[in-house]
């Protein structure tokens, strides 16, 4: 899978990296068990500080998307629940934002369905 970051985006680099990996797992470009490059190697390939990559990997591991083994490095984890309360929190925030915008429940559900399919089929990694 090709990871891409934009060094001038307002979104922090480690978040961009984390999101890319999540999108990759969702649409199947990254398979369960697939090894990810080492922190140093990925930092060198992208030309960014290795602490940034380390932070992204730590976030991914904490949320349950990857497993970090001290000897074998990072690898994609088979589908797991991960940190469910945090995920529920994020989704609730989205729902609250929909409410603030005056969006009807049906419309919000419809939007969620669209996003879900987009993430599943790929192409979701392209940001606005």
């Amino acid at each position: 899978m090709i990871l891409q970051i934009d060094t001038h985006s307002a979104q922090p680099l480690y978040e961009q990296l984390r999101d890319q990996v999540v999108f990759g797992i969702a649409d199947g470009r990254l398979a369960a068990g697939e090894a990810l490059p080492s922190v140093r190697r990925l930092a060198a390939d992208l030309g960014i500080n290795f602490h940034t990559v380390s932070k992204a990997y730590a976030a991914l591991a904490e949320e349950g998307y990857i497993a970090v083994d001290r000897r074998r490095g990072a690898a994609v984890r088979a589908a797991t629940g991960g940190d469910v309360p945090k995920f529920v929190g994020q989704l609730t925030l989205c729902a609250a934002q929909a409410l603030c915008r005056g969006m009807a429940e049906e419309d919000f559900i419809e939007l969620c369905r669209g996003c879900y399919r987009q993430a599943q089929e790929g192409g979701a990694s392209c940001k606005k």
């Binding site: 899978m1 891409q4 934009d6 990759g24 697939e34 990810l36 490059p37 190697r41 390939d45 992208l46």
Partner: peptide, 16 residues
């Protein structure tokens, strides 16, 4: 022009 940076997760492409 874009200022995107890229990396491949497969090690065959990687530097080093």
């Amino acid at each position: 022009v874009s200022d995107a940076a890229f990396a491949e997760t497969g090690s065959a492409f990687s530097r080093g």
